[in-house]
Design a protein around this nucleic acid. Structure first.
Lengths: 201, 201
DNA sequence: TCTTATATTGACCGGGTGGTCAAGTTAATA
DNA sequence: TATTAACTTGACCACCCGGTCAATATAAGA
């Protein structure tokens, strides 16, 4: 049993919280272990006792973030299992927006990881995430094809790619503009769904 | 007249080349002025004589990259002015791929800037680039609307957004996978164009 | 209570950073 | 050629980094 898990829960929480904030504010290379201990109110030696390296702390936090993302995806997939493609798509976008509102710092870490360059094992992590997304969207596309809502002769890889590109970009834009000028969420959701319905049938 | 411009051209080139390599290899925060002088074979003091700060050197290089991108965009816009939307779209993708092949390091700097987090004035630069892309794609969409190839009742902002999202993502993917497993460029170009033709008409 | 084991601390290490500047080199002028 | 002006150099500065470890505080066991 590693030393971190033996800690009182509230202390664990303080450390995790400080780490999330730091990795959300700065990218991996520039994030500072000194700042983490400062934020968490513990000594540097302690942090390196719980996590041997900066990389292993990052690994811990990143898995936490991915876990949350996964559970959101699973939830929306199951809740919309019977719905038509159009409604399903709208729900996916909505739940993405919801996730960003609920976990802005985790969303930041997620986008940093996807789009930025230098985290340890970046390539591995990104392709793991890509597979997750591909499987998820692939399943939904397949359902829509089976129901005849989407042209089943389409190249599935490409179709998933378009969906992933537009959805991710939309959420990223939403995330970045989340302070200040909001854009009309409903209109965008409607626009995106009709665009795909037409483009894929 | 700033001291850098007074330098012999080949020395300027050496410095610019070294800087491009460094900013392509590492993101802004982790790129090192020490490494730049090492690569360029000049003394540190000299570099800081030509460019007062790291930020101003980055600014210089970034403008160089954007200039190249702009000239590529202008070229493909003018060369395809009379063509139908479908062919135009294909040409745009092609020329993007071409740019990445011709200027891999500049492409890297571009993607770093777009997707990564911490360059000086990042927000300003990114919105400047976004405007460039919006104007460019907006013009092409408008042409297609005028010719009746695209439904003119569509929300133009959204339409441009979808185009931008898919094109950028495709080029990014192409860029990242450019070592090793190539994917079938023609099939993707065909897939993307027909998807948009159907989705937008 | 005394002793042993464990958890916590922060000064310290080697190394890298952007940036400076006195001293040395080269070029231009008279 | 002698003098001045401009350029070039790299040792040096303060600061920050991830990581270590002897010393100290705390908890457990006898």
């Amino acid at each position: 049993m590693n030393p971190f898990e033996k800690l009182p829960i509230d202390k664990q929480k303080r450390i995790v919280d400080a780490s999330i904030s730091e990795f959300a504010d700065r990218d991996y290379e520039t994030a500072s272990m000194n700042k983490v201990v400062e934020r968490a109110g513990i000594a540097k030696g302690s942090l390196f006792n719980y996590f041997k390296t900066k990389g292993s702390l990052y690994y811990h936090i990143y898995h936490l973030a991915i876990g949350e993302v996964k559970s959101y995806l699973r939830k929306v997939r199951d809740e919309t299992a019977g719905l038509p493609f159009e409604d399903r798509l709208a729900k996916i976008v909505d739940s993405g927006v919801q996730f960003i509102s609920d976990h802005p710092r985790l969303a930041r870490i997620y986008f940093r990881l996807i789009y930025s360059a230098d985290s340890p094992d970046r390539q591995k992590i990104v392709s793991e995430l890509q597979k997750l997304s591909d499987d998820y969207l692939g399943e939904i596309i397949q359902d829509a094809m089976d129901r005849g809502e989407v042209d089943s002769k389409l190249n599935k890889t490409q179709t998933v790619f378009y969906l992933d590109a537009v959805l991710n970009r939309f959420l990223k834009e939403y995330h970045e503009s989340s302070n200040g000028n909001q854009f009309d969420r409903d209109e965008w959701v409607k626009g995106i769904t009709t665009f795909f319905i037409k483009g894929l049938r």
